[in-house]
Design a protein around this nucleic acid. Structure first.
Lengths: 246, 246
DNA sequence: CGGTGTCTTGAATACCATCAAGTCTTGTGG
DNA sequence: CCACAAGACTTGATGGTATTCAAGACACCG
């Protein structure tokens, strides 16, 4: 696999302008609002990085907890032979990793998929706030528990499911998360979909070549429409059956 | 795959005798001690179940948080076609799942591998104690963060590594955890090892047949000795290279 | 306009699953 | 104590799914 020379770390925090949070697709779901608004009003830095840029590197110290405001990112483990495994896709409102609060040295990197806008909260600030606000801590833990459940589900998918099943389940899972954020066309199963096939491959433990073949087959059988950075699930019922074959 | 008619749920809590915790291999590591001893002295029930018995079922309500005292168990997701994926092995001192504190309905089952002795703490008790003791909460979260890291590591293994690598890494990981608990022969890499090959298969996303072939190959090349419920890593250095090939 | 990234398709190959038969051990009831 | 059944493991033959290799089409960008 090829080196990616364009990947350089984000370096320059923007001035902390009051960004239009109304644009954040997950404003209501997210911890971000609670942390940044009164009465807590934690300080944070804001960053904007272009697609394909690295937000933070594997094994490098990180003293902020990043929260995505706009765009898609992914947390990725890179192996020494260049192969990659995506642990999770990060959508607006997602904190990069809940576990990051307790370990300053992530074992994965975070890479922007689209242009990404994000905030970095100081770890120590977040921890003191959580320690003082039991209800906040509780909702934080619930979010963490959800992430744990998703990770375990992914383990099952990678361990025991075929390529068709893995890909169908990934797409359905993303569709569900986008719907929660109001990021699908109202009523339909149509959504903006910035993932490249190599992202799908890295998330499902497959090769890009095989992903291409499976998606083509899905397209031919009228299950999905996928093109021009957009995805439509045409036959949700049949598509879900493929994801739940076992 | 076959139905396992012998698996019935553990039903009868024993009388709450003061068990000899000195025998617990992970007494110092575990939350269990802190929870059960003064000054907290939480109430708990104690259970002993034979090998292959189910401690708790997938999707069934559970109002206690089990902590393993003796023996090996595994948390397992079962799919409708009978195939199984082991999420984690549970050793003495392990709580069944940290996430279980926030979701009473586990998406996995827990099965005893050897005879298992465990305690069940009431979820609500544990939560109130955690809420009141910041240092306890902190160490709880650190344990959770470790479990999260292990799950992510497993995702990488299943997504991007070959059978040889997966199996070698599993054995090394277990050896490391056993060593932490003083459950290896002092100085050597020899340990009691109750796993059947089908457990290894279910944990690595492989078939028992293939596990057998890989283990035989490891044995032939003098990497490990594995027989009679015991495992010795004969050539740790070479074995680790196999686990870290990429 | 070349360069890079993305996607597609086909052919050859590798890895692991499946199927099957046989050995050995373990546990159980007669 | 023996007979029998079930579980655990091994080994070889065969097959399928996904990888690797390769070539070409297409879009986008500086």
């Amino acid at each position: 696999m090829s080196a990616r020379p364009h990947s350089t770390i984000a370096e320059f925090p923007q001035s902390r302008t009051s960004t239009t949070c109304a644009a954040c697709a997950a404003y209501d779901l997210s911890l971000c609002r609670t942390l940044s608004e009164a009465p807590l009003a934690l300080q944070y830095s804001e960053y904007t990085v272009p697609a394909r840029r690295i937000l933070c590197r594997q094994h490098e110290l990180l003293d902020v907890v990043p929260v995505i405001c706009r765009g898609w990112a992914a947390s990725i483990v890179m192996l020494s032979d260049g192969s990659r495994q995506i642990l999770s896709f990060l959508l607006p409102g997602d904190a990069v990793s809940t576990a990051l609060l307790f370990d300053a040295r992530p074992y994965f990197m975070v890479e922007a998929i689209t242009d990404v806008h994000y905030r970095g909260f100081k770890r120590s600030d977040v921890r003191t706030v959580l320690a003082r606000q039991p209800d906040l801590l509780d909702s934080f833990c619930r979010t963490w528990a959800q992430a744990t459940a998703r990770a375990d589900q992914l383990i099952v998918d990678l361990g025991r499911r075929t390529a068709d099943e893995r890909i169908a389940r990934l797409l359905l899972y993303l569709a569900e998360r986008l719907a929660q954020r109001g990021m699908t066309q109202r009523g339909t199963m149509e959504m903006e979909f910035p993932l490249r096939q190599h992202h799908i491959a890295d998330a499902t433990g497959l090769t890009p070549v095989h992903v291409s073949k499976v998606l083509s087959e899905f397209r031919r059988s009228g299950l999905i429409k996928i093109s021009e950075r957009s995805l439509t699930i045409l036959d949700p019922e049949r598509f879900q059956r493929i994801g739940h074959m076992r």
